[in-house]
Design a protein around this nucleic acid. Structure first.
Lengths: 337, 337
DNA sequence: CATGCGAATTACATCGATGTAAATGTGCGG
DNA sequence: CCGCACATTTACATCGATGTAATTCGCATG
């Protein structure tokens, strides 16, 4: 089987110089129609395809960006990835997707381009990164962080207003008369991660409604998966007094909780309300369907890609951006919708 | 901000030749410990990282493989992607993930390497590919197909035994006394796609049990999403006589059906059984939990990566493989488990 | 101390595409 | 028919890493 043809082969076949072929490929304007036609035929005839390595070596750009998320089988990240890839596509970029499993080491690797000068920049959704990791990173690789923000400054950042989102979701529960609202996946003290910010928003809502805060109702979890939500909900049912609502910090926790409540015969929303975050597709189809805080994922993707490409084009001058994306509380059956 | 250092800069810093630096990077054996140490320090000091483009240009390999799936927000593909990426990682390869949206044009592009000589090979999960597309493809790019197989030969292929899987799932329903089993997403005539093969398996099971086949019970769908399952289930409830079981050809259809049945007040598995395919994580946590056919996803991923890498190493000689992966019917609440 | 041998290191060419600058071609006015 | 302006096309060098082959080094032996 013949080796892949090079630009030189196409040139010889077409009877022109390699550079002319290159000019045709790149739609350079000063190429006569006849030459362009001849070259295109040669490309077709030989089945020629650009070798990206050669191009990148010359141009210094790959046209690829890295997207690093914790886990693809967490629906939120899969949906986000889908949007980022679509947006990148629209802007002529290719996405290299990585999973970090939320492990600091791998997030660090992402932050530094996976020990290869590979893609032009990185969009990273961190979980375990330490503030110092971000502060001391190698500034030569453009990075946009999503969601968590271990440290101010140093990178561009895109996220929803987590405090406001949690406040609104909590207010919704309070407006339905709920008073003992548990926070599944919450965190009272500790770094300003998403869990902490959302717990803060929850507390703000309680305060506004003059409902006392009870730290026993803030339940940390190992991970944000179904099983953790199920486990936490089961534990909360045994508490005395029982909570009358669960504010779950993502939809998987909430869906796991729904399952546990079903197993215990607790009616939702009759006896207890449940709210999630992320608005993954499953939350529309669960039984009962799930009230949730929907971030504008498309806008997150759009902003992240835009910020990153700007930063790639112009690494130094433009000021660091902190893009806040809209969100919305979608009321469904799990809170009487 | 300084530009990224090249191998030459490291060489100068360490006082050796570029080739020696390269030897250190690639763990070439004939390098003295002292030199190795010096070079490593220089790499560290300058923050040097390999430029993949340069390496690939020289070596003719990228160490990257493409994985092209229809949609990441279909959980099965997200889970599969996760496994493929993990397996590729284990074998020192990086995965470039693409979504085709099940559009023939994009699948064709994947089959041909996305008009760039980019990755070393492609793992493609096709939906819309025409047999001719596969038969006439450019053989210079190694390809492994997953699931659907538009044409025999021409590529390596990995899938479960769809006929047997559907036969077993149907037999399970029959053993529970179900006799009017609808196939959601099924196809009686048409190409040997997954839907057709599974419908064939369903028919085999009926035949073995001497249950007559009724083509009205085979319901095609637009796509394999929740909403399509919900829609199909709703339509089937209005049929007379009603089916007493739904064999849904993936879990999303099944979960959507469960939702529709819940809305209509039909008890599962009391009045009606539901079975899915894929064993996505959600099927463990749905209400009721879902009986489903679980393909060995890890093995699919392992085999696909292995076949592809073999083909990359040795494009011509080894015979085309058709790897059949194991599956298992997991009985849960939706069929009385 | 010359010689030989393997280990360690290096010079050089090369992978494929494209930017630069120079060369060639074309059309038009004078 | 000449010369100029502009459009096309081309020669050549270059991006960064590494394979090949040649060179240098270190050390033991006669």
């Amino acid at each position: 089987m013949a080796a892949r043809p090079r630009i030189k082969d196409v040139a010889e076949y077409a009877g022109v110089s390699p550079k002319t072929v290159s000019n045709v490929i790149n739609n350079f304007e000063h190429v006569s129609d006849r030459t362009r036609e001849t070259v295109k035929e040669a490309i077709e005839a030989l089945g020629y395809r650009v070798n990206i390595a050669g191009r990148q070596l010359r141009q210094g750009r790959t046209g690829m960006i890295t997207l690093a998320v914790p886990e693809l089988d967490v629906a939120y990240f899969a949906e986000l990835a889908k949007h980022v890839m679509a947006e990148a596509d629209r802007r002529g970029q290719t996405v290299l997707l990585h999973q970090t499993n939320g492990v600091r080491e791998r997030e660090l690797a992402a932050l530094h381009g996976f020990d290869a000068q590979f893609t032009d920049g990185v969009i990273l959704s961190p979980l375990a990164l330490h503030p110092r990791d971000v502060a001391t990173r190698d500034r030569r690789l453009p990075v946009v962080l999503l969601g968590e923000r271990p440290a101010e400054g140093s990178t561009d950042h895109v996220a929803i207003d987590n405090v406001a989102a949690a406040r609104e979701a909590t207010a919704h529960l309070l407006s339905r008369g709920r008073r003992r609202i548990a926070v599944v996946g919450g965190m009272v003290r500790g770094p300003q991660g998403t869990d902490r910010l959302r717990t803060d928003g929850y507390r703000e809502a309680l305060k506004e409604a003059h409902v006392p805060f009870d730290s026993d109702l803030v339940v940390p979890v190992d991970a944000f998966h179904w099983r953790d939500g199920a486990r936490a909900a089961a534990a909360l049912l045994d508490a005395d007094p029982r909570p009358d609502a669960l504010l779950c910090l993502n939809d998987h926790l909430a869906l796991g909780a729904l399952r546990a409540l079903y197993e215990r015969g607790v009616s939702v929303p009759g006896e207890l309300d449940v709210v999630g975050f992320d608005d993954i597709e499953a939350s529309q189809f669960s039984v009962p369907s799930l009230t949730t805080v929907a971030p504008d994922k498309r806008e997150i993707a759009r902003a992240a890609v835009a910020l990153l490409l700007d930063r790639i084009d112009d690494p130094d001058t433009s000021p660091l951006q902190d893009h806040v994306v809209g969100h919305e509380v979608i009321v469904r059956e799990s809170t009487g919708g």
